[in-house]
Amino acid sequence: MTDTILAITTLWLFVFFYSILGTMDFGAGFWSFLYFNKEKTKVTNVANRYLSPTWEVTNTFIVLLVISLYALFPGAAYTLGTVLLIPGSLILLLLAIRSAFLVFSHIATKYSKVLTYISGITGIIIPALLISVLPISHGNYVEGEKGKEVLNLSALFTSPHEYAFVGFGVFSTLFLSALLLSDYSKESNEVEAFKIYRKNAMITGPISLVFAILVMWTMKSEAPWLFENMMEHSSMLLLSVLFFVIGGIGLYLPYFSKRDVKGMPRLAVIAIVIQYFIASFAYGRAHLPYIVYPIVTLENSFTDPATFRAVFIVIIICSAILLPGFYLFWRLFMKDKRYLSQQKQESKK
């Protein structure tokens, strides 16, 4: 593997991690907003319990992405930084409001209504903006010579390609988070919440598939180079669809258990994450060697080799050091029965 491939693979892995964590985070915010008024369901509580400890870690992943981009491909960071000034700033503003009010709503219960609205609505808009980076990187909407690039916003927002991506991003967010929360509520013995989230996953899943098809459809005319590259690896796309089907089986298949609930959310979560992994790998591979088509390539934006080596070593060592911390975190919030079943205490208060 060459250094540039190693670098882009690392970056892609980070993007993938973030997109999974981020969708779950944003989606959980939305669900907790949607079910806020239904006092008797514990649906909001489940979402909040997941969200409270995780948002900060998820947020750090955004920073990780930005930093790793300019560590590994400073040339691309230059172009993207210039082009993304407006959408990037919009994301930042919404993110700031959202994170702040998410924290505040847990502390000042009086405000929690307004605050839940804010975090719920931004939880939908932010993924829509974030995913817009992908169609932008396909190049059609970037004008001007290197060093003075500008984004043609009106071209972007009149393109069906963009909207296909936005729909895909939003529904994937809802789908993945509903799936995860159904698993999470099952783990916490919240039968009612489990049923609702499972139902939501069953609805949003197929819709996100439809949007994925629309993305490919519009790509054919808007970014033919990418479309052709992806079709060269169509076996991967088929594999990804296969995992989608497995995920569907996990959701729909009657599952006999003592609590009379249907579905195997754990299987579905794993299958769907694998599905996204394969699909985004296929997309990423087809995108190469371009980062922003056609001006920025891996080669012309790569960092200094000495810096690359140092950065790469740091990533490996620091990740290894921090792994136990992540493990402990997972144990405490995703597995520990005492945390998951905090219900009684909470309702007493």
């Binding site: 400073p74 960092t303 740091v314």
Partner: peptide, 17 residues
């Protein structure tokens, strides 16, 4: 940041951790 990315990105990268 283009210069920082090529030369001085270690502190940022470690800071993430």
């Amino acid at each position: 940041m283009e210069v920082i990315g090529k030369v001085m990105v270690l502190p940022f990268q470690i800071e993430i951790y």
